[in-house]
């Protein structure tokens, strides 16, 4: 871990100003991903601005009948929130499928969205990785790639976004609220927060330098049956091979987002009209133009069968 200076921010304005003005400064909240990556010198902030005292840890009703979730709400608290459990059950389910009890107690809502990939080559600093070291090459391509992405990939990177929560957020059409260094507030639809790797996999999201997520808002509840199905080798405490988040209405329509397949939470709205036609048609739309490797080709069929299973569960 490289040396850094540590400060606790006492106001939003101060936090944002510091991170935007000090070269190499970063926010820290839960720390579960950042501290890990700092130990490996994959992240090398010169300053850490601790934002835990900023009071961004409330869950409150929003004006339009939705929910406003503070950026620092811990994963545990979000999953346990009564209204989330009742009206946004897919979000609770996704959160509870992720990590471990300990990590969910530490990890925050915004940090979860911004966590970095778990690609083992990204984590091994001896290996080429375009995400860690631009233009050094991608070791996963042609290497061990069982866990890697199958849609939205590029010749530069086939890493996945590891979050479960983000898949549910994408399904729920969440909006990310931020404060920019100049103090202005903006909202970003979650679909536009994460980027595909293209030829700049080191740029993972659309936030500006120093821009801070302050909240995530959910639109008013859409009803339906909420399911989050995470598929993994061991029964718990493992990243998804793939996951399926779905909300299905009584008439058989609904929405689906898929995790473990792309550099961002993956949802193809246009494909969702095929939901009543069943899993095969729906999956064909969602995973159109999939590019698989020898190791991860199974994910296509796995997504299809998992979606089929989810749709069966809704039928009861």
């Amino acid at each position: 871990m490289k040396a850094f200076n540590y400060e606790r921010a006492t106001s939003l304005a101060e936090a944002v100003a510091k991170v935007s003005h000090i070269k190499g400064a970063k926010f820290i909240a839960g720390g579960t991903n950042l501290v890990d990556l700092m130990k490996l010198q994959i992240e090398t902030p010169t300053h850490l601005i601790d934002i835990n005292d900023l009071g961004l840890d409330k869950i409150e009703a929003s004006a339009d009948g939705g929910l406003r979730i503070g950026a620092l709400v811990r994963n545990t608290d979000l999953a346990a929130n009564q209204q989330v459990r009742r009206d946004y059950a897919v979000l609770s389910r996704a959160l509870l499928a992720g990590a471990s009890g300990q990590l969910r107690n530490q990890a925050t809502t915004a940090g979860n969205l911004l966590q970095r990939t778990r690609c083992p080559y990204f984590y091994d600093t001896n290996m080429p990785c375009n995400k860690r070291e631009p233009n050094s090459g991608c070791s996963a391509i042609g290497g061990y790639s069982r866990l890697h992405a199958i849609v939205g990939v590029s010749n530069s990177c086939i890493a996945t976004h590891p979050s479960d929560m983000a898949i549910a957020m994408r399904l729920l059409d969440a909006t990310v609220e931020t404060v920019r260094p100049n103090g202005s507030i903006r909202t970003i639809p979650i679909a536009e927060l994460h980027r595909l790797p293209e030829n700049t996999p080191h740029i993972e999201h659309t936030l500006e330098a120093g821009e801070l997520i302050t909240a995530v808002t959910l639109p008013k509840p859409v009803g339906g049956t909420h399911i989050y199905r995470k598929v993994r080798d061991r029964a718990s405490y493992a990243f998804a091979l793939i996951s399926v988040a779905a909300i299905v209405q009584r008439d058989g329509t609904g929405r689906v987002a898929v995790g473990g397949v792309a550099h961002k939470p993956w949802r193809v709205e246009a494909a969702e009209r095929d939901m009543p036609r069943g899993a095969k048609a729906l999956t064909a739309g969602i995973l159109a133009n999939a590019q698989t490797t020898h190791d991860n080709a199974f994910k296509v069929l796995l997504v299809e069968r998992t979606i089929a299973s989810v749709l069966n569960e809704v039928k009861g």
Binding site: R118, P120, Y121, Y144, R146, R234, A235, S236
Partner: peptide, 28 residues
């Protein structure tokens, strides 16, 4: 679940931590 995955180009076990090399947990 247990398998050290070989990168046959570089000659090493890629999944060299306890997230990558899965061993059984309570729920298993």
């Amino acid at each position: 679940m247990e398998g050290l995955e070989v990168d046959k180009r570089y000659g090493f076990f890629v999944n060299h931590d306890l997230a990558g090399y899965e061993v059984p947990v309570h729920a298993d």
